[in-house]
Design a protein around this nucleic acid. Sequence first.
DNA 1: GCTCTCAGTTGAACGCGTTCAAAATTCAGC
DNA 2: GCTGAATTTTGAACGCGTTCAACTGAGAGC
Lengths: 218, 218
Amino acid sequence: MAGMRKKKAAKTQKGDQTKALILETALEIFRERGYEETTMRAIAEKAGLSLGNAYYYFHSKEYLIQAFYQRLHDEHLAAALPALEKKESLKARLLTVMRLRIDLMNPYHQFAGVLFKTAAHPESPLNPFSDESDPVRQQSMELFAKVVETTKARIPKDLKAELPYLLWVYQMGIVLFWIHDPSPQHRRTYRLIDHTVDLLDKLIHLASNSFMRPLRKQ
Amino acid sequence: MAGMRKKKAAKTQKGDQTKALILETALEIFRERGYEETTMRAIAEKAGLSLGNAYYYFHSKEYLIQAFYQRLHDEHLAAALPALEKKESLKARLLTVMRLRIDLMNPYHQFAGVLFKTAAHPESPLNPFSDESDPVRQQSMELFAKVVETTKARIPKDLKAELPYLLWVYQMGIVLFWIHDPSPQHRRTYRLIDHTVDLLDKLIHLASNSFMRPLRKQ
DNA sequence: GCTCTCAGTTGAACGCGTTCAAAATTCAGC
DNA sequence: GCTGAATTTTGAACGCGTTCAACTGAGAGC
């Protein structure tokens, strides 16, 4: 029952530093050259340590992506929380969060393809539905729970309980679109967000307002 | 403008033989060990030729999957055409084709994960929406066009024109489900087919029957 | 101070996908 | 048959992800 994380290493202050250094260096090269072009040797060399050392902190190259996801979420949270304080309506809150997400991901667009590829692999630890992704997924859903906690909208409890998961799936859909979006600065993704958030907002209020308690069918 | 395929090699009878031999051998080992466990060296060795030779016929290991898709379709067609002659109703015809598809894929279930993973990669030639997949996709849609050509159902032209593509996408969805279906003999996939074909049949007849020409919205 | 332990680190080695220059084979035209 | 070009085949080599046995070094307990 004791579900302890076996995440790996970093038992020491020095260890934490090294691990962070490796991740920073990796992301830097990812941004420059993309994922496939970045070799573990290049990361180790640029970080000034040995190849084996990188593997001490990251089981495999793929785990760097998992760490990237975690970091992305942290940044997303850090940027979203203060921004949310200024927004009252559900629509404005959701819009803020979704736009921020894409803002933060944009620098990494060119390695997004691999992101999705590995994420799609059923057995991959990167599969967003896998156990290993659970912490990030959980935290991500918590952010959406905060989005839904607005003073302005009255949302019934049962719907409110489902919304974080639904919005998380929605976000995955948007990210998927973004990955394939070749338009300059990914304008089309932002436009899609505008449209769908508008739609979602209407739907949620509609479902909240009324008698339609038996919407359990979806 | 001259859109000639650069598919690769096989300019000679012997060449065809060798290419076929490599593919057969590869699929054999894929079935036994799955994709990742199968090395190009093992394929070459079992086929009794050199490593480089395998690469002469298949640009990369991934291209073996593309060839697998093509072969799968050929078998699907060969099995479906005679079976379709005995079925009149749209529902029976669609059911036949979908079940056959899964029957044929079942032996390869364990390497299906990779199938999907590489297929999901936007830049991969295996992406079902890519140019390189065009011929197989086209042929696959032709099969669905034949399914729709039943003497029993009256389907308006405009709908009939869209159906092959819709059904092809539907098939992709079913295959995706099958990939993740852990139930013994993939019973759940067959059950899903039964249900959804039933639904689709009703929907198509409904849409055909009536006045609802402006269903262009979906 | 000494030793024991264990996180942290190293670099060599392995297996695999892929490439390529060169050798072998096939075959059309004479 | 002979010849030359095109096709096919070979095997060695390269780069990369990954593993692992051995080394280093810092600190806890004495």
